[in-house]
Nucleic acid binder design. Structure first.
Lengths: 258, 258
DNA sequence: ACAAAAGTGTTCGATCTACACCCATGT
DNA sequence: ACATGGGTGTAGATCGAACACTTTTGT
């Protein structure tokens, strides 16, 4: 897809493979060692950053499409992707006509002004989170660059992607205890200190060190193993694993009156 | 939109006004006097029922589109409509080719087989609830009929609309205490008995008569008035009103650890 | 006085929050 | 022995669930 020829074909004939007017944009958060980041890309010829996204093939489900799009961009497989909201305000995408003028001077983009890509597009928002130290982004379709940015240093984004990031983060936070979201962020066996840091970092606030493991173990989300890990000159911490089967409480939200 | 000429024009040129490939389908629940219903329509020429829906104008927001679509079909204004999920599996719409054959024999539908309407469509799900005794449905675009059906007597629906109804109902139930959803179902001043019935009916289970008002009043969602209502030969009940401003707790879901 | 519907209070257990000290290990 | 990071328990407040009788009113 990255040769000029393929690009040109995508611009002219992509609508045969992909559904026009609808795309998926993914807020991919990255965690590692107390840091929360997000994956942003720069599109060729546009000045500014936005979320990675792409079109849906006519033969795939939305979830599969989101997965494929993320894979194409980050080469990360097996993410737990969640649809969170669809965005469609008519003014959500404002093309910078100067950029467009510039862009259409380059060979593969010559016909972009009349392309199916130019028509109004509704975007389905997905989010996911992964370990950014093991996920090395590779620029994909139309991307000039694709990199991790600190969550508290995000520049103002193109289109309505600021709003998308906010709503995605809000959803991520609210689902942290009900979906197996953090599973990909830690090794199979991890310590309380490690998972504690994950939760604090994602939620952006401090969590009581003593109540935290109580809650997680009580909910049955993690299990303590008999083993300990050997780490240098200090007390050896216990190891824990996720208890995937216990995450099915997700749907019992909200309604709690007897 | 209901004259044959307008219909024909919609089939052939609708894509100029509306965004193709994306539609909105609305699960409109109706409550009245202990009964929960849902609005279903029959599309001309198709055998089976489905949710009312429509296309999005190129100049309107998704929320506005949902509102307009509902208004066109039910002539009810001012509904509290909520987006809950987007559906887009490639096989979600299976046209019955026999139906289509039949349909295209009628004058306004002659060109339907090659119309923009035939292409794959992704559907954004919205839900709302209203008082079905005051909402008299009027068949709109392409609708043959549009009527209220008891929630526990819904026939199997066309496309993936069974799934849509389930997920909409689930969302409605989970948001009942956080969004001003029930406001349209009761008069401005209502009694505890009335609102109690609303909650029991929508949730589909019994709620303790004594804990129920405690919770609502404690959350500040309703306020008791000094007046009572005079109803025949029994004790006069107090009247209550909604406290709209207190419904902003919606976003604090899920995350409760200190 | 009675029939019909409205209204109210308490107790128990579970959960949430806040808080400070001892433990294990390697040097 | 000490420095470093790991681990734990308890008490008070709050919340949710269960439960039955008294009040009001018109006839």
């Amino acid at each position: 897809m990255n040769t000029p020829k393929e690009l040109e074909d995508f611009i002219q004939n992509g609508y045969k493979t992909y559904i026009p007017h609808v795309c998926i944009d993914c807020a991919i958060f990255g965690y590692h060692d107390h840091r929360l980041k997000i994956l942003l890309r720069q599109i060729e010829g546009l000045h500014g950053l936005c979320l990675p996204g792409g079109y849906i093939k006519r033969v795939e489900t939305l979830d599969d499409a989101a997965k494929r799009i993320v894979e194409e961009i980050t080469s990360i497989t097996g993410l737990y992707l969640q649809q969170y909201k669809t965005f469609g305000d008519p003014d959500r995408i404002k093309w910078n006509e100067l950029d467009l003028e510039e862009l259409s001077k380059q060979a593969p983009f010559k016909k972009i002004k009349s392309s199916w890509l130019r028509d109004q597009t509704i975007s389905i928002g997905y989010y996911a989170i992964t370990d950014f130290s093991s996920a090395i982004p590779q620029p994909g379709i139309l991307s000039e660059s694709c990199e991790w940015y600190d969550i508290d240093k995000i520049p103002s984004l193109l289109f309505d992607h600021d709003q998308m990031v906010n709503e995605a983060l809000q959803t991520l936070r609210s689902q942290l205890y009900y979906h197996p979201i953090v599973e990909k962020l830690l090794p199979k066996k991890f310590t309380l200190t490690e998972i504690h840091a994950v939760y604090e970092t994602i939620l952006g606030k401090r969590l009581d060190l003593r109540n935290f493991p109580k809650k997680l173990v009580f909910m049955g989300l993690i299990n303590r193993l008999p083993e300990k890990r050997n780490i240098g000159p200090h007390r050896a911490p216990y190891l824990y694993t996720f208890n995937k089967k216990k995450y099915s409480r997700a749907l019992e939200l909200g309604v709690t009156l007897s």
